[in-house]
Write a protein that binds this DNA or RNA. Structure first.
Lengths: 163, 163
DNA sequence: ACGAATTAGACCAACTAAGTCCTATTCGGT
DNA sequence: ACCGAATAGGACTTAGTTGGTCTAATTCGT
């Protein structure tokens, strides 16, 4: 009953991209740094985002990743589902004749209600909106700067901060 | 991002107990049948419910399980958390200084909002209320009866229906 | 006191999540 | 056109969780 690490990372990264001028390309190492994500692990996360079509990748020297879709068109739900597939609160909520109890089981509708709430909230949070919340008051930009100064020699080989 | 099988089973079983006259004791095999749960697996589920204090167990011949608390006092959230521990939508939502981003990360508050919604919906669904929804119109009672008749010789050794 | 009924809990296999490392591709400079 | 550095892509590894089974301990009725 928890979002995977990959989903969390994906959201961070996409928000960062959404806060940049449209068309900006950012390389993996940079995304890993600002998102506080293990760099190699980020490969897998970005791959899925590319496959989903919301992110575009550019290989070679000077390459990197950029949004393939306007930030306003991407919701947190889109990002999570790009990583994890469709969100199902319980096994009985998959489409089709999955659970013969669903017609009468009183718990079924509570599961459904819970799932709907999650979908609604996540679906309403657009990347554009989130990026706007992040940038104004010395947030992403400031943090990046701070990091670039304070962590110069440490190089993040150790265990990352969870969350 | 899905409730575990054990939680689903636990909810089914507690609803069943909640629909019976107070103090009724039901043995594991019976609970497994009406809940459509693998019987041996149900042991572990019931154990946790007993440890949490909401269910009481009685060993030996004529023993079984009964509610230790009024059904109205037990919510679906209580049951789920008895099985899985506290619900955390994301790692950054655990109490204390878990994630240094939480102060400024725009996604954090969306995760929090989502989790609150889940807690609220699950917390509002009481076992008494759910049991009442189940019993009136030939639901649990009917199903049980139906099963007792139609499945007499089959004995549920095969794979159970998911959900 | 004995034995059947029943729960308690250790045990195991399979799957998934998380992370690491190596390989293939691409671009820019020469 | 070619070389080498930079970059994404994806196979591989490890650790932990989930779902399930089996045996041991306990209790009650006779």
């Amino acid at each position: 009953m928890q979002i995977t690490r990959a989903s969390d990372y994906a959201v961070r990264v996409v928000i960062h991209l959404a806060g940049l001028p449209v068309g900006s390309t950012v390389r993996r190492s940079e995304l890993a740094r600002v998102g506080d994500v293990p760099e190699h692990f980020l490969s897998k996360v970005l791959q899925r985002l590319v496959h989903s079509g919301m992110v575009r990748s550019q290989r070679g020297a000077g390459g990197g990743f950029s949004l393939a879709v306007p930030a306003a068109k991407i919701s947190m739900l889109d990002v999570v589902q790009a990583i994890e597939g469709p969100i199902r609160m319980n096994q009985c909520l998959i489409e089709g004749p999955s659970c013969e109890r669903k017609a009468w089981c009183p718990a079924h509708q509570v599961w459904a209600e819970t799932q709907d709430a999650v979908l609604k909230i996540l679906g309403a949070a657009s990347m554009e909106q989130l990026a706007a919340q992040a940038t104004p008051g010395s947030t992403f930009a400031y943090r990046n700067h701070e990091k670039a100064i304070t962590i110069s020699g440490v190089s993040g080989t150790g265990r990352r901060t969870p969350g």
